[in-house]
Structures are given as structure tokens and as C-alpha cells.
Design a protein around this nucleic acid. Structure first.
Length: 505
RNA sequence: GCCCCCAUCGUCUAGAGGCCUAGGACGCCACCCUUUCAAGGUGGAGAUCAGGGGUUCGAAUCCCCUUGGGGGCACCA
């Protein structure tokens, strides 16, 4: 069943992030697609760190990217497994900063074959040309000034102290490739202009290093974002000039902001770590990301990473971009939270709760909040009442909040007092949700109140809010002493109001 | 400006000529359940398949044009 690549070998794909920023949604999604394609085909997934932009890349970002991918459950067969760590795999090293020596000979080969030439133009000169082209409504591209310099002219520039960049000499011809997702794509290289492959300071540039490395690492399929489509003709020209086999290309659709522009930091939350810190589960994130541009063709929508590996096919990836829909992510996160056992949920909740919360309490809490959590971080607000003093909780609400519709303060005070007396009769040992509920209901019936009317003031007294986890479970967790104290505090507040309006209890 | 890509409910999508008076999910609305909020259940609104031409007995599905949207045009990646 395993498909073979363009060259008859097993599939080898790669993800090549640049550690110039933290892991973002787009990188994660492209990594996921590469990972899934490799797993589906029984191929190899390579991680290569493209850190040639010395000015912008950092080890911290590399760590964020690697850890973020691992958090999602994405693993790779070759490449660094930890930031700054040792590379694994037969094509070591996998960090471009450690491969610098490999690019120079290839650039020299291009020079020797006449496929590249030194360019002495300064940034200012280039800028001037660009401006002139813009003014004349010409496409902005290199004018080829240095392409046919004589040896004397080159020597003169060098004597002048100028350092040359290396430009690739583009052949004006039409290139075509059969994109795995888009089908045949055609491009006229005459429009390209001679692009720089090595900077004047000797630093090799992206289009060049990517080609040299992908060839060296025997990459068979290049799966990357649609924003790279326009790099493809340049790279194909490089592959050919260097005498390498050209891999197959698959350009996946972009992830979009709400306004359908390419997802950007400005308009969307892009850092994966931010989602992690808010308590999005990696399972939900993976499921969500996978469907941004792919679907199995059925009505199923909940998939684990393993199931995705089994079902994912590049051929089913869409061409159109997909908007990142937070509502849907939230929904999926809820689905995955609800699917957790209490033990699993308790474990995941730990980092989102105060240190005062002990493991036993968290475990008892889990079933109470499971159906109410959208993100794990929401646990804080939901159970804050458990970790605050009775005084603080009392300060959260005004006495009016204790009153159900159509019941005044003195009535509620009466009901609450009855509840307090009833519950005070229970021992610590009897203080369990089931008992509390049956006593509460019996009392409501006795008073001829709707249960809800009696439970509302108790709820506010216990939790300080009108919205809370199930009342009796909450009281059980809070314990007898604090529960009774909080009801007393509520009664005190009612008294003040009733007193002010002249109503005697 | 030039080049390339794309186009089904607000959003994610099903759909590879007849099964489509276009299906599912999220979101939204209503009702049910219910101690609040959720969760769950039921139902509903929501897409003249961007528009126009073809091809065909028959088109969301194939072709062409138009329109709209996006991406790219660095000594960044």
C-alpha cells in the first residue's frame, strides 16, 4: 500500500522551521501534514532547522518549536530531538548553521559552470534600480548589470574594496511542475530575474540552502505552505543547474484570519504556547488543525493523531485557504475534555489550580466541572470559591443576588434560616452531596417552595456567584464548617437589607 | 503594477455528471431535560453551489470568460 516517491524510493519529507520566533499555528499545521503524510505512507519525517539568519534566530525559539511540536504529539525520525541537542539520522547535521561548509562548494560549482556570477551592486544601487522600475511600471527585478562583467571590471570592483554576492543566472524558459495538490502549475522564469543565492558576507540564502539540503537529505516530497509557490520555479531551476533530481511539491492552503488574509500575529493569536497555556488539549488542537484544509470525505470529525495517520492523504488536501475558527476549536476542546476520565482530567487540571488544591480535592472536583470547561484555564473562575476565605466569597456578591424572582429579603431569610438549621443537624460524616440534596429537596417541599428558589440563595452563599458547579457537590467539597459559615454570612447580609427596608425577620 | 493560486451556508466541510428540491459539524434561534451554568436531546433559520456563457438528455461537479479574494515579487525564511 505504501506509495513510493517520484524516484521510486520510500517517501522522505521534511519540515524546515526557522527559529526566528516561537512555534506558530501555521508551522504546526504544516508540520502536522508532513508528519501525517510520512506516517501514512510509512515514510520518513525529517526536522531540519533553518537557522542561517544569524541576526534573528535563537536557541530559545528552537526550543519553543521543538517542544511545541512534541506537545502536539508530532515526532520525527531524523533531526535534533531537543533544542541544541545532538542530531539523529544519516544525513547529519540537520541544523543549517552546522552545514555552512556544504554550501560553498555547491555555489562554486554553479560559478564554475556559468550558472551563477558575482554581483557587486550595493544595496543603494539596487534600491535605485527598484525605484526606477516602480516609476516606469516595470516588474521589480534585478537588471543584470553584473551578469556580463569582464574579468577587468570584476578586478576593478574588488580593488575598490567591494565584496560580491553570488547571483543565480536565470534561464528565460517556462517551468512546469505537477503539484500534488494543485495539479500542473506553470511559470515563466523570464519574470524571475537573477536572484541572490549567497550574500556578500558569504551567508547562503534560503532558496539555495533549501535546495542543497533537500537534495542532500534525499527529500522526495516537499510539503509546504502555499506562500512558497513562487519560490518553486527558482528552486527547480537550482535543482536542475546543480544536477539534482527534482522532488515533488505539495503546496498546502494557508490558514487565514477572520478577514481571509494570511494568518498573522496582528489579527490572530498565533503562538502555539498561548493555546497551551489556556488549556487547549493537544488532541483537540491536532484534530482541529488537521481539518483546516483536509477532510476524510466522510461525516466523521473526531480523530486522534493515530487515526489521522491512518486516514490522511495528500490527495484529499484542499486548494482553498481556511479561516481559523475559534468557536470550533473551543467546541472540539470541550469534546476532548469530556472524553477524559476523572483521573486524566485531574492530572491536566493540576497546573491550572492554586497550590492549595490537593490531589484528592482535584480528583473529586473533576466530575463536577468536566462538562463545564471550554479551556482548562476556566477551572480557576469556576472553583475559585473553594480556595478563598468565607469573607472573600461573601464580598463577591450583593445581598440582592440572593433573591430569587418574586421573593423578598425576609422570605429568603426565612428559607435560608430553615436550610441552615436543617443542614446543621448533619454530621461531618453525613456531609455528602446526595444527603444534602435530599434534605434540601425535602425542605423545599415542606416550605412549599420551588426547589430552585431555595437553592439559589444557598448557591450564592456558598459560591458567591449565581453560576457555579452543581451546588451539592460544591458543598460537599467545601465541607460542613465553611458551608454553614457562608450561609450565616448570607443571612447577615439579608438582615442588613431587610432591616434597612423596615422588614422584620 | 507584474506573476501565480483559489472560489459550496457566517465558519470548517461532504459533493469527482443523474443518489442534490445541496448533506454534516461549529456558531445562532426555539423547545425539552434541569438546582444555576453547562452538557445532552429535538426542531429551525441559514448556500438561486460568485456571475455569465458553453458541452451534455442532464452540471455544484467538465470547458471558457468575467468578477471577487488570496499569495508572491529581498543580499528574510
Amino acid at each position: 500500500m505504501s506509495l513510493t516517491s517520484a524516484h521510486g524510493r520510500p517517501m522522505r519529507v521534511r519540515m524546515a522551521p526557522s527559529p526566528t520566533g516561537p512555534l506558530h499555528i501555521g508551522t504546526a499545521r504544516t508540520s502536522l501534514y508532513n508528519f501525517l503524510a510520512a506516517r501514512h505512507e510509512g515514510g520518513t519525517f525529517v526536522l531540519r532547522v533553518e537557522d542561517t539568519d544569524l541576526a534573528r534566530n535563537t536557541l530559545e525559539f528552537e526550543r519553543d518549536i521543538i517542544e511545541g511540536l512534541h506537545w502536539l504529539g508530532i515526532t520525527w525520525d531524523e533531526g535534533p530531538q531537543v533544542a541544541g541537542g545532538e542530531d539523529i539520522g544519516p544525513y547529519r547535521p540537520y541544523r543549517q548553521s552546522a552545514r555552512l561548509d556544504l554550501y560553498a562548494p555547491e555555489a562554486q560549482r554553479l560559478l564554475d559552470d556559468g550558472n551563477a556570477y558575482p554581483c557587486f551592486c550595493t544595496p543603494e544601487e539596487l534600491e535605485a534600480v527598484r525605484h526606477a522600475q516602480e516609476r516606469d511600471h516595470q516588474p521589480p527585478r534585478y537588471n543584470g548589470r553584473c551578469r556580463n562583467l569582464t574579468l577587468e571590471q570584476r578586478a576593478a570592483f574588488e580593488a575598490d574594496g567591494r565584496r560580491a554576492a553570488i547571483r543565480f543566472a536565470t534561464t528565460p524558459e517556462s517551468v512546469t511542475w505537477d503539484d500534488l495538490i494543485r495539479g500542473e502549475v506553470e511559470f515563466d522564469n523570464a519574470l524571475l530575474g537573477d536572484f541572490v543565492i549567497v550574500r556578500a558576507d558569504g551567508g547562503p540564502l534560503y532558496n539555495f540552502t533549501a535546495v542543497v539540503d533537500d537534495a542532500a537529505m534525499q527529500i522526495s516530497e516537499v510539503i509546504r505552505g502555499e506562500d512558497h509557490i513562487s519560490n518553486t520555479p527558482k528552486q527547480i531551476a537550482l535543482y536542475k543547474a546543480l544536477g539534482y533530481d527534482v522532488p515533488r511539491f505539495a503546496h498546502i492552503p494557508l490558514i487565514l484570519n477572520q478577514d481571509r488574509t494570511k494568518m498573522s500575529k496582528r489579527k490572530s493569536q498565533m503562538d502555539m504556547d498561548a493555546y497551551r497555556q489556556q488549556g487547549y488539549l493537544p488532541e483537540a488542537m491536532v484534530n482541529f488543525l488537521a481539518f483546516l484544509g483536509w477532510s476524510p470525505g466522510t461525516q466523521e470529525e473526531i480523530f486522534s493523531l493515530d487515526e489521522l495517520s491512518r486516514r490522511f492523504e495528500l490527495a484529499r488536501v484542499h486548494k482553498a485557504g481556511a479561516v481559523f475558527d475559534h468557536d470550533r476549536l473551543d467546541y472540539l476542546n470541550g469534546v476532548y475534555i469530556r472524553a477524559l476520565t476523572d483521573e486524566q482530567l485531574a492530572l491536566r487540571l493540576r497546573p491550572f489550580l492554586p497550590d492549595a488544591a490537593d490531589d484528592a480535592t482535584i480528583l473529586r472536583l473533576a466530575p463536577l466541572v468536566k462538562e463545564r470547561l471550554v479551556r482548562l484555564v476556566d477551572i480557576g473562575e469556576l472553583v475559585a470559591f473553594l480556595f478563598q476565605t468565607d469573607e472573600v466569597v461573601a464580598s463577591w456578591y450583593a445581598a440582592e443576588l440572593l433573591l430569587p424572582k418574586k421573593r423578598d429579603a425576609s422570605e429568603v431569610a426565612r428559607g435560608l434560616t430553615a436550610a441552615r438549621d436543617e443542614l446543621a443537624g448533619l454530621t461531618d460524616a453525613d456531609w455528602a452531596a446526595e444527603t444534602l440534596e435530599s434534605r434540601g429537596r425535602a425542605l423545599a417541599e415542606q416550605l412549599a417552595w420551588k426547589p430552585g428558589d431555595l437553592f439559589k440563595p444557598i448557591r450564592v452563599a456558598i459560591t458567591g456567584r449565581t453560576i457555579s458547579p452543581p451546588l451539592f457537590g460544591s458543598m460537599e467539597l467545601l465541607g460542613r464548617g465553611h458551608s454553614l459559615a457562608r450561609i450565616d454570612a448570607a443571612l447577615g447580609k439579608l438582615q442588613a437589607v431587610a432591616g434597612a427596608t423596615g422588614v422584620v425577620r
